[in-house]
Nucleic acid binder design. Structure first.
Lengths: 347, 347
DNA sequence: CTGTTAGCGCCTTCAT
DNA sequence: ATGAAGGCGCTAACAG
């Protein structure tokens, strides 16, 4: 007794059992006031007995609106994106939407098919973290439903987006390293084709300009796609005669790769990086991280989307850009070992 | 020009433009061989021009089968569950299903509503990580669709499930600590009402029995719900006159709390725990972790579910229980400081 | 090769 | 307070 037929009992079945028409069942389930108490009770009894559940697919077809929104992320295994998804979920639930989730696995060429699929499933809107720099396929989706971008800005698209303060955060964290007196700072970055990569490099650069220091081009490594690449790049830098005095990493995976390299090399270097991560505070490294609320990106994106759905009929609002603030957090070393540590006054 | 009407152009619209009936459009889109080449081309042209997408909702209603499966996890922010979700997604995609995801936030009382919602949306099956120990609401869902449990076994339910080798893993990791000569091992565990908590305690116990050591009851702390609680419990244990010689933690969050406590206390202790985690290898602690492939739990669960969907008509297979293997990994300390280290000498 | 009919389960509209 | 008709968009089954 499980999963017979196409999809269980229908309103007619309930109606037959309760000796009313399907229409009346519909009214009862909708809490329509114009139903007698006795009828209402009989219907509920029948619903219970049959384990009846209203068919949302049929409803959607009739009412026009699936009650679903689609989310496409690049890598759910990265805590950044799973938290983002959680934020989306939270707000979606609050407004009675469910979340259809797809993972592009950072393969930009897979993304169009994922998005088409979500549109086919009649999602009422989409939140997308674009995997690549081409966004033309999103224009196609926008013919059907509103699209909100997360973590990356639109490129040639007129749509809402939610960003982190990439430039500002990178500048501030770099400034911390510079203020500590480190001038030879290595930059370990993801591909510059990605918006975040470019912006964070810009912030790194700006911080240098502000104090009149010229970054050393030989210490700038971009295009690091994962922790392993970052580890190799760091080991390489450490092997140089003029090794850097500090490291700046543009995301959590790169930071982790760099940390692993330092550990393996049996050395230590002040490190600043975008994205906070678990156990950053117990590594015993002078660590400066750019922290922000990844859930909030998801929440804001969902709000923008749902707000747009609400104005579905009237004049759609102009496209908006929301920014989630960053905050620099300094994780110290246990004892006043070395370096100016945010924990104590001084400096 | 975005998201007008209920849901964009229909097959009739396409048909009108291509000067054929909706039926022919349907055939073309289905790749039905019985359509002339010229017609096919006209239809595709019209589809392109209108940006037409087939309405999956209407298809589902007609064909019976939404092409969606539902996944309910307790905490997507925990990498364990996000990886599980990724595994589900992977197999689901492979078989042409999409994934509707809900997060119970470990609130068992919210779970029934989430599940009902998914059933309403006509998911063809459900994969659930139950938040609590009561599973009666799942029986209700099973009247509609097959349900597969992940990470926890069914309780009074006849259904498939995918488990980790909780007992075995805990026993082996504990045995490592014992083999290293530590006999006073503290146990830091999640609530014993949870299956994993109970099983892992059982494993801990069994390892002791095998070497004829009696665990010290005073060193057993259960019911730790998060890293903060684990941290407090660990600090408390460390403050004792007869402090433990090693720690066993039943999951990643507890391990992290314990590690933070050790760090704050400025001390170090051999630690074994369930779940591997990022940077475990660079903490410079003698760390033994029970590692396993969380994605694989999701993949297996999805396979069991989809297999059951395939037998949808015939005789359903008897309920199965799949177990994902665990593997003990030893993260050493940098230099041959102490303990049997699986890693290479030096580096 | 192409079109017509009918109905998936539900709900809006219009009777009664 | 309740029911009957019709159709949301699509596609089997049956014409032609």
């Amino acid at each position: 007794m499980s999963a017979r037929r196409g999809s269980g009992p229908t309103m007619h079945d309930v109606g037959r059992l309760a000796e009313v028409s399907a229409m009346t069942v519909s009214r009862v389930l909708k809490n329509d006031p114009g139903v007698s108490e006795s009828t209402r009770e009989r219907v509920f009894a029948a619903v219970d007995r049959l384990g009846y559940r209203r068919n949302q697919t049929a409803r959607s077809l009739r009412l026009g609106g699936s009650g679903m929104i689609g989310l496409v992320v690049t890598n759910l295994a990265n805590p950044f994106y799973s938290r983002l998804a959680l934020g989306v979920q939270e707000v979606a639930t609050e407004y009675g939407f469910r979340m259809l989730l797809s993972n592009s696995a950072e393969q930009a060429d897979r993304e169009p098919a994922l998005i088409d699929g979500l549109v086919d499933h009649q999602v009422e809107g989409l939140i997308v973290v674009p995997a690549g720099s081409r966004q033309q396929h999103l224009a196609g989706a926008m013919r059907h439903v509103p699209v909100v971008l997360a973590a990356r800005p639109p490129a040639g698209l007129d749509t809402d987006c939610v960003l982190v303060e990439d430039f500002h955060g990178a500048r501030e964290a770099t400034a911390c390293l510079l203020a500590d007196g480190h001038t030879r700072i290595a930059f370990l970055g993801n591909p510059p084709a990605l918006y975040t990569g470019a912006e964070r490099l810009r912030g790194f650069w700006a911080a240098h300009e502000e104090v009149g220091v010229e970054p050393d081009h030989d210490l700038i490594r971009q295009g690091l796609v994962d922790a392993a690449a970052a580890e190799r790049a760091t080991l390489d830098l450490l092997a140089r005669a003029d090794r850097p005095a500090a490291l700046f990493c543009t995301n959590n995976r790169i930071s982790q790769g760099a940390i692993r390299a330092l550990y393996k090399a049996g050395t230590t270097l002040p490190l600043a990086g975008f994205d906070d991560f678990d156990l950053a505070d117990v590594l015993g490294l002078p660590l400066t991280v750019v922290s922000y609320d990844a859930d909030e990106i998801g929440r804001q994106a969902a709000r923008l989307l749902i707000d747009r759905l609400a104005h579905h009929d009237g004049v759609p609002p102009a496209s908006r850009r929301v920014t989630v603030p960053t905050r620099v957090v300094r994780h110290g070393v246990p004892d006043g070992a070395d370096g100016p540590d945010g924990a104590t006054p001084e400096a």
